[in-house]
Computed example of a mutant assay.
Amino acid sequence: MIDRNNGWAIGENMGENKVFITIDGGSTWITTSTSGIGDIRGWFFMDSDHGWILYSNGTLYRTENRGKNWDADEVPFDMGKLFFINSNGKYEGWVLKEYGPASGNVPVDVYRLINNKWTLIHKGELPNSTSASPNPLPYEGEKKSFIFLPDAKTGFIATERRDPGKSSLYMTTDGGYTWNKKDIPLLSKLNDKYISVYSLKFVDGEIIWPISAFDDVKKDFAILFLVSKDNGNSWGEKTSFIYKNSPRKIYVLDKENWYVLFENQLLKTNNGGHTWKKLNIPQNTFQIQFIDNKIGWALASTSTGTNLFYSENGGYTWDKKF
């Protein structure tokens, strides 16, 4: 959801992947046709008007008027993570091209939109081959988060690996041409833990990065929120807590409001992690989103499909929307 009323959704209708919009907070959804062929492999929605949809045939569709019209471009990638920013009135775009997972590893390249053309700017590492790029993005690990800051130069890729202590963060300061692994002492202290990484969020001059670390001996999870106040150059621990269950999703809204989704339970803080409250949520919820500390939505699986629930009191109660 973009705001209280307007939102986008990707779903299946009669066996076809479709793009939907809502203008009434999710009560009703309207199909917006892209005429795309194939599976939807990636998407990015910047606001109520601007969206991008990537199809498996290597076509990227773009709208600037809430899906009323879509422009199609043939692009040199058919799957990956899209990211766009509005930098001083100019739209900047990147794609982390993915080649598909292989035993938990995902080779990637970075493309950038330059003069309305998608250009390869960084070649990642492939198995059993030597990359021409200096410090290539690794083949090992799943790339879970891909963001750029408003300066259009600083970007991050969070990589999750199945080996204890191997998850990591890569950073660029030249718009994605070169990437270097960040040395984060706090992560080094977790070298015997299985580290899961979540999406980084840039809010009010800070970067907040949630992670969880599983202790195979104690059988519990440390949920940590790392923070950088200098555009990713140094990192510290903002807050942490121990929990017996594995987080399904961690959603950072702003500096103070964070939500950790577990199986049939939601933990939230409205004061940057100083205190947490446990909330009940619709059964089988697999995704949550809040636009402020009151208004939120939850997607839950049912025997007949997926239902959308709505809360206007910070998640204490939920009503079925769709």
Score class of each variant (00 low, 15 high):
Met1Asn: 09
Met1His: 11
Ile2Asn: 11
Asp3Lys: 00
Arg4Asp: 15
Asn6Ser: 14
Asn6Ala: 14
Ala9Tyr: 06
Glu12Asp: 12
Lys18Cys: 13
Asp24Glu: 10
Gly25Ala: 05
Thr28Pro: 02
Trp29Pro: 00
Ile30Lys: 15
Thr31Ala: 14
Thr34Val: 08
Gly38Asp: 06
Ile40Glu: 02
Arg41His: 09
Phe44Gly: 05
Phe45Glu: 06
Ile53Lys: 00
Arg66Met: 12
Gly67Pro: 01
Lys68Gly: 09
Ala72Pro: 05
Glu74Thr: 12
Phe84Glu: 02
Asn88Arg: 10
Lys97Arg: 14
Ser103Leu: 15
Gly104Ser: 07
Asn115Glu: 14
Asn115Phe: 03
His122Cys: 09
Gly124Asp: 03
Leu126Val: 09
Pro127Gln: 06
Asn128Ala: 11
Gly141Gln: 00
Lys144Ser: 02
Ile147Asp: 01
Ile147Phe: 06
Phe148Ala: 04
Asp151Asn: 10
Lys153Ser: 13
Gly155Met: 02
Ile157Asn: 00
Arg162Gln: 12
Pro164Leu: 02
Leu169Asn: 01
Tyr170Arg: 04
Gly175Tyr: 00
Gly175Glu: 03
Thr178Tyr: 04
Lys181Ser: 03
Lys189Asn: 10
Asp192Arg: 08
Lys201Ile: 10
Val203Gly: 00
Asp204Phe: 01
Asp204Thr: 04
Ser212Lys: 00
Ala213Leu: 03
Ala213Asn: 02
Ala222Trp: 08
Ala222Gly: 02
Leu224His: 05
Ser240Asp: 06
Phe241Tyr: 13
Ser246Asp: 11
Tyr251Phe: 14
Asp254Asn: 15
Leu261Thr: 06
Glu263Pro: 05
Asn264Gly: 08
Asn270Pro: 05
Thr275Phe: 07
Lys277Ser: 11
Asn280Ala: 15
Asn284Asp: 14
Asn284Gly: 07
Phe286Tyr: 15
Thr306Lys: 01
Gly315Arg: 01
Tyr316Phe: 11
Tyr316Met: 12
